[in-house]
Structure formats: structure tokens, C-alpha cells
Design a protein around this nucleic acid. Structure first.
Lengths: 343, 343
DNA sequence: CTAGTGCATGTAATCGATTACAAATGGGCT
DNA sequence: AGCCCATTTGTAATCGATTACATGCACTAG
């Protein structure tokens, strides 16, 4: 057991060949004779050699890793996407860095630095609000470092994106409520500046419209996707003189917050108010009541995004696939029901 | 706008100094004259130079990144820990790789490879079942690559670990139930081979014991921490001739699965059965009913683990702090109540 | 006046791989 | 035999930084 890790030099010495031959035997086995290959492989075995990635990457001018930028790592919604990304990257030998999007300028500089410093070959951005000024930054090759957006996207950005049919999903949700007989359908929105907020709001309006219902400004409660914001919206709802009998929430977590809070005030779901979410996070099927929601293929989103990024990295920006939009599906469970008969 | 990224050579040329001076001006400013430093900084500015991490890392023999190995990335429990880890790493300029623990041998080899190939300076392992044979692997320096375990740990492992007081937490939970007047207290355990399962089981028994209650084998239902396993346990519970009136679950998700399933069968929590969880994941406070649970400081666990790992990486294995054990706290909410009066 | 000290800087080796280019070998074909 | 080409291997340059060592200079003390 030597104290230094074996290098390609050691393998070459043991095998009695040059380092070039060792490198070839390992990375393009077809280019050496069978005898030599065996010799090298045996030497690798006896020395316990593993190629040093830093040296390889320096020479090859790539990092063999990508970076995922999420608004908040702790949100389970994003972890599923990251899981999908990792599923694609691992078999390719790519490492996956994760980082939270940065609010301060200093941190943002850190990101740009990461980009320019040859540490990663590409980015997957899950935060639609991230300033894409870094798009202009170039990697060591002089080319811009490829970026793909997933879930959220940025209007006017050059980066390709993989998204889901937010408008269609929201529309389906509203139509479901209308079909149950609801005429007073409210909406808890997402945070103001978010692209998903806008898309789901649009779907909400379209759903209302296609069901022959009028849009009422006062039926839209502002949320932030979070549990707490759903709770706050519930407080507001409880005080409304003419309450909606059904609520389409822009996220499952808002729905949980809402249900939790109204339950504490003796309101029962779905008897007194129907609630529908968006996302279908894992716990949704186990909530009490089980949540009717619009299901997003989160893992698949990650997988598709990773594949797109690899296309960009490898195929060098031709093969520009269309921005894929994945389907969502309405999962009907127990938080929606026909409205109670009016007294 | 040149097509190649600027290198230290370019900066040196523009500033009219040698590359050594540029390097010194940037990494140890005190070692160059003020005049030269300004010259270099100005040249950096005009060229837009950012140091190439691969080259730097190769020379310095470190990777400037660590790797987190989690059983499943999609589990929100782990994402909080990862968030804590990232909070510590980012300011230090360290990148955080994440990966799911590997079941197949092939994938495991990939991990060992990562370790030996100088891609990371250390590991944080969140999976107690991960085979630590890789512990024996050495990095490029010849020293073993530092590892710290977090949350879960491995019996007999050399790796330091940061954990929480699982036994104490479980004991508190059971005592709380006993204090409410419950005498028939059941337990939904974790997966068989898991260290947390054993610890929480031990706490369960101690809690029973210190409350003067006897341990009953048939009151222990097997779970796997998951929502589904809680649901299955509920099915079992419903069929029991002599049901426990309170259940201590080894995880919040088990508790949700349990409550969800019994609710569907007309059983009310906490009126008919009290339920207490373990973890205090985000949604717990918003469940219906809000879940009484043992709260773990997940983000803090990540932060402490990351700090420990840095100590190991930098201080070169002296300064072996004790394995810290963080406190948990019982959060009493609405899923626990005194038992219903027996008929 | 000279040796010694310390500072600022430059020269060149170095990290460990990949790969362009060169050289050697052998086989097939005319 | 002579030529060409393919195959296999070796030599050495290269990726872009850091850093050991050498150099030159100014200043001080003896």
C-alpha cells in the first residue's frame, strides 16, 4: 500500500508501455493490440489506478459536471426534479452540483464565476426569476455555457426550456369544478412576479370563460405557493361576504394551508368548500381529505431537461429541439364535490 | 470580444508582468507591491479573466467540492439537510455534488471511482446502509477521503457522525402519550435494517418502561418510514382485536399514511386514536389534524455536518471533535388527546 | 567596503492526464 | 523487390494554473 495514489506513469511502468498507450488502452481500447490491452488492464488492476479527473478535465477542456440552480433546495417540489436530473447524469459520468439561487449580488457573482471558471459544462435553472445576465458569460472555450430552464422559464430568454401545460392544467381544474356545479370559483394565485402564476391565472380565466362563468376580481386571492400563504388566503376567504364555493389553488401547498386553516374554523372540505391544487406532490394523495390536483411529471421534467442539456453540450448547439411541453393530468380525489345546496 | 477565454498568460501580458506575479497578486496580495497589484487587477478587469478551476485544482491537488450521498433525493427530509450543507459550503467556494446511494454494484463502483479520482474532497453520507468499504479507498494524496455521516450512521464505522437524540425523542413522545392517559401505545417502526429504526424502538421501549407500561410485541407494526407503509399499518391496526389507542410513528410520513387510511374508515384522530410522528417535516403543522411530532433540526444537521467535514478536510484529521448529537423537541399539536372513555 | 537580510519579481518545474506527430513494423499488391 | 498503407506504439507538447528556486535590488550593520 503505497502512500501516493498511482498515476498513469505507474501503470505504464508496470505494464512496460508508454503513458500514451495506457491512456489509449483505457479510453479507446480499439486502438491498441489485444495483448497490450490485457497488459495494461492487468497493470491497472495491480496498481489500483483510477484516472485523475482534474487532469483529464483540464486537458479535455470540460468539467464533466453540470449545475442545478433551484430557488430553494428544501422545497420537495424541486428535489423530485433534481432526482430526475441525476438519473440521467449519473450513467453518463456527469456530476450534478446543486445550489440555491442567489439573491445578493455577491452570490450572483459567485455563480457567474462558477460558470466562467470551467467548473461546469452547463446549467439547469429552476428559477424563473434568475437574472440571465449570466447568459452572456462565456466558458473557457469561448462559447456561452449552455443553459436550459425547467418548470419556470424566463420571458424573452434565449435558453430553451422544458415546461408543463400550466394553462391547460389550470383550465382543466376549473372546468372540473364547474362540471360539479360550482359557479363561484375562486383562485389562490402564486407570487406576483412568477411566470407560473401568470400561466395558471390565464388557465383559470379560460376555464371560467369556457364554462360560461364570469371572472371576478375579488375571487382571486394572492398567494405565494407556500403553506403559510394558503393559510392566509383562508383567513381572507373566511371573512368574505360572498364566498366562492370552490377554490383552485396554484400549488398543493397553498391548498394544504387553506384546508388546514378552514378546518380549524369548522369548515369541512369538500362539504363546505371544494379545493383543488396543482403539482400533485407526494403527500397529496394522503392528505385528509385526499387532494384533487393537477399532476405534474416532476421526475420526467428533470430527465427531459438533463437530456436537452446534454444535447446542447455535446451537439454544440445544432439540433435545437423545440421547447418541450409535458402534459399534466387532473387527478380527482376527495377534496372536490358538488356545492352544498344553498339555503 | 475574443473567442477564447483569457488565461493567466493574457493577464500577465497586459499587465506587463510574469504569470507568477499575477497568480501571487490574486491569491496572496500581500506578497506583491501595491503598484503591481493595481496593475494586475486592472489587467484582470480589462481581460475579464477568471481563473480556471481545473488547472488550479490539478496543481493544488484538491477539488474544491464535496459530495452528498442520500438514499433518495426526492425525499423532502433530505433536501432540508442538503440545504443546510449548501449554506456552509457556498461561502467557502466549495461546490456540492449530490447523488443517490447506489444499489447496484456497478453504481457503487461509480462512487468509489468518484472518490479516488480526485473529484471531491469529502463526503457527507445520509444513508446508514451504505457499505463503507469505500472508506478504505484513498484519494490522490494517499490519505483516505474524509467522510461524515449525518442523521443515519453505521455501526462500527470510523466515520464521525452528526445525529439527533433519537432515543430521547422517541421516549418523550411515548411519555407524552402516557401522560395523556394512554395505556395501550403502539408503534409503527422503520425499515428493519435501519439504525434509526432501532434507536427509536429503543426509545419507545424506554418510554413505555418509564411510564410503567408493558411492552407488547403485537403493538409494534412494521413500517418503512413511507406514506404507503403507514397506510398499510393502518389496515393492520383496523383489524386488531385489541387496538392501541395511541400510535407513535417512526416518521411523519408514516403518521400521514396512517391517519389518511383510518380517516377513510371513519376513525377520527385524535378522538379515536392519538397519533404522533417523528421529524416535523414542513407540512406537519398543516396536516388535518396538525401533527404532534418530534422535531429534528434538519437544516442545522446539514450545517453541522458540513462544518465537521471541513474540519476533517482542512485540519487534516486532528481536531477530532466528538460526534455531536443535536437535541430534538416534542411539538405538541392536535393529533394527540386523552383516550376516549372506554364503554 | 562588504556581507547579510528581506522584498519583489521572474524562470521554469510541476500537477496528471490526452493527443498530435513521428516512427517502426508488417502485410498486400504490382 | 519495391511501394503503399494500416496498425501499433512511443515521444513530447499541451491544458492553465501554482510555486520552488533563483535573481536583482535596496538597505543596514559591522
Amino acid at each position: 500500500m503505497r502512500s501516493e495514489a498511482p498515476t498513469i506513469q505507474d501503470v505504464a511502468r508496470v505494464a512496460g508501455v508508454s503513458t500514451a498507450t495506457v491512456s489509449r488502452a483505457l479510453t479507446s481500447p480499439g486502438r491498441v493490440s489485444e495483448r497490450t490491452r490485457d497488459l495494461v488492464l492487468e497493470a491497472v488492476e495491480t496498481t489500483g489506478y483510477v484516472a485523475n479527473e482534474m487532469a483529464r478535465n483540464l486537458r479535455r477542456q470540460r468539467a464533466n459536471s453540470i449545475c442545478v440552480i433551484a430557488p430553494e433546495l428544501s422545497n420537495p417540489f424541486f428535489s423530485n426534479i433534481i432526482s430526475g436530473i441525476e438519473q440521467i447524469c449519473k450513467p453518463q459520468g456527469y456530476g450534478v452540483f446543486v445550489t440555491e439561487s442567489s439573491s445578493t449580488d455577491e452570490e450572483k457573482a459567485g455563480l457567474i464565476n462558477m460558470m466562467a471558471s470551467a467548473r461546469v459544462d452547463g446549467f439547469i435553472v429552476l428559477d424563473g426569476n434568475l437574472d440571465h445576465s449570466m447568459l452572456k458569460t462565456r466558458g473557457p472555450s469561448g462559447r456561452p455555457v449552455p443553459i436550459v430552464s425547467a418548470c419556470e422559464w424566463r420571458n424573452g430568454s434565449l435558453a430553451p426550456s422544458v415546461t408543463v401545460d400550466n394553462v391547460g392544467g389550470a383550465m382543466q381544474a376549473v372546468k372540473h369544478l364547474a362540471a360539479l356545479g360550482h359557479t363561484k370559483i375562486g383562485h389562490i394565485s402564486g407570487p406576483e412576479e412568477n411566470v407560473l402564476t401568470a400561466a395558471r391565472m390565464q388557465g383559470y380565466k379560460k376555464g371560467l370563460d369556457s364554462s360560461g362563468l364570469a371572472y371576478r376580481e375579488d375571487y382571486v386571492l394572492r398567494g405565494e405557493f407556500s403553506l403559510e400563504s394558503g393559510q392566509r388566503a383562508a383567513e381572507h376567504w373566511l371573512k368574505m361576504p360572498d364566498r366562492p364555493t370552490a377554490i383552485f389553488c396554484a400549488s398543493d401547498r397553498e391548498a394544504f394551508g387553506f384546508i388546514s386553516q378552514v378546518s380549524k374554523n369548522g369548515v369541512q372540505v369538500p362539504r363546505d368548500v371544494s379545493v383543488i391544487g396543482f403539482d400533485n406532490i407526494e403527500v397529496s394523495g394522503f392528505f385528509v381529505p385526499a387532494l384533487t390536483t393537477v399532476s405534474q411529471p416532476r421526475v420526467e421534467i428533470g430527465r427531459v431537461a438533463a437530456k436537452m442539456l446534454f444535447d446542447l453540450i455535446q451537439e454544440n448547439e445544432h439540433h435545437t429541439m423545440e421547447n418541450p411541453q409535458l402534459d399534466v393530468s387532473l387527478v380527482i380525489r376527495e377534496s372536490t364535490a358538488p356545492p352544498a345546496k344553498q339555503a
